[in-house]
Amino acid sequence: MKKNMGWKELDFGDSVNAGTAAEFHTGDWRSDRPVFHKENCINCLFCWVNCPDSAIILDENNKVAGIDYRYCKGCGICDTECPTKKEKRALTMEPERK
């Protein structure tokens, strides 16, 4: 999206087309990052349904495919909600390397 648009370039009223926030990346907010381990995933989708940032990527079969790090803020809800056992975690939190 064009930055610093002039008033003549703006849409009617204060209208803006849907979904433009997809261009705004909040991934750099993270201090911890969830790491997805596909081999352990049971596809319960609890992480996906509880993610506040729509940052759980589903594949074409609606199975968890990974984390969208463009948006993930590292809250860790996915990790908390993931029901997989300790020794075979599908999600783990790791410190973000900056």
Binding site: N50, P52, D53, Y71, G76
Partner: peptide
């Protein structure tokens, strides 16, 4: 909703 909104990490509202 798309990602890229500015809610706090862990906010319950978008959920």
């Amino acid at each position: 909703l798309t990602g890229g909104h500015r809610a706090c990490a862990g906010c319950g509202a978008p959920i």
